[in-house]
Design a protein around this nucleic acid. Structure first.
Lengths: 118, 118
DNA sequence: TCAATACTAAAGCAAATGCTTGACTATAGA
DNA sequence: TCTATAGTCAAGCATTTGCTTTAGTATTGA
């Protein structure tokens, strides 16, 4: 996933309202009005959030008649999750090596072990 | 992980400079000056990014002498990744059910839909 | 046909962001 | 001690964000 695109995705997810929309959309597609029901906010504001979500690639929309249906675009969400996986792998490798070193000198009680991993 | 805290974490990750810092820190702790080397940006700006990362809980810092060492706080990163896992699980279950329904309809096409037909 | 519905576009606004520069403190090392 | 280093604080500034309100357009259903 591109750098700029990750910027947009994480920015989109940094807003609680938009995250709640994503969570709603995980249960299935919804119209803009349906998405607006949990919030005390103008429909205009909701529409702007939807536009931002679409620009970030997190949703696709399609207008049928006067209703715009919004649908989750799971590839983008997975792409963002992948960023975590890649870097988690890196730091876990490092902590593994660190763990070996610490075991070798396990006599030292001042140095706590790094957090446990599954 | 708390709602407001997720706001902060995703906001922190929405900036390419800060993501690059996280990626650097996945390889091990670094000082503020070390973190600044890849960027053509004032040290002050880097310091402000570090402060934001610390406020979001993505790193911890510790001043030794005149050097501030910055370290990745992996629990927070894992907490954010968990948000994806939870919601991926939800939409995957939904798509499974949808898959079953489509298979059933393909078997008994009582209500033909526009588009693809078997 | 005609009113209600579902958005949408535009302008405006307060607050937040991502820098900058300049002045400052504390520490390390020759 | 004296200076270079590492960072910090504060003010300022252009841009972006997350809303609002107002004024539309397109579509639907009675």
């Amino acid at each position: 996933m591109l750098q700029q695109s990750l910027d947009q995705v994480f920015h989109a997810l940094s807003d609680g309202t938009r995250r709640a929309m994503i969570e709603r959309l995980a249960a299935g597609p919804a119209s803009v009005t349906e998405l607006s029901t949990p919030f005390s906010m103008s429909l205009s504001a909701i529409g702007q959030h939807v536009q931002l979500l679409e620009a970030s690639g997190l949703v696709t929309t399609q207008k049928k008649g006067r209703v715009r249906m919004v649908e989750l675009k799971t590839e983008t969400l997975i792409g963002a999750e992948l960023w975590f996986e890649v870097h988690r792998a890196r730091w876990e490798r490092r902590l593994d090596r660190l763990g070996c070193l610490l075991e070798e000198e396990a006599a030292n009680p001042e140095t706590p072990k790094p957090g446990k991993r599954p």
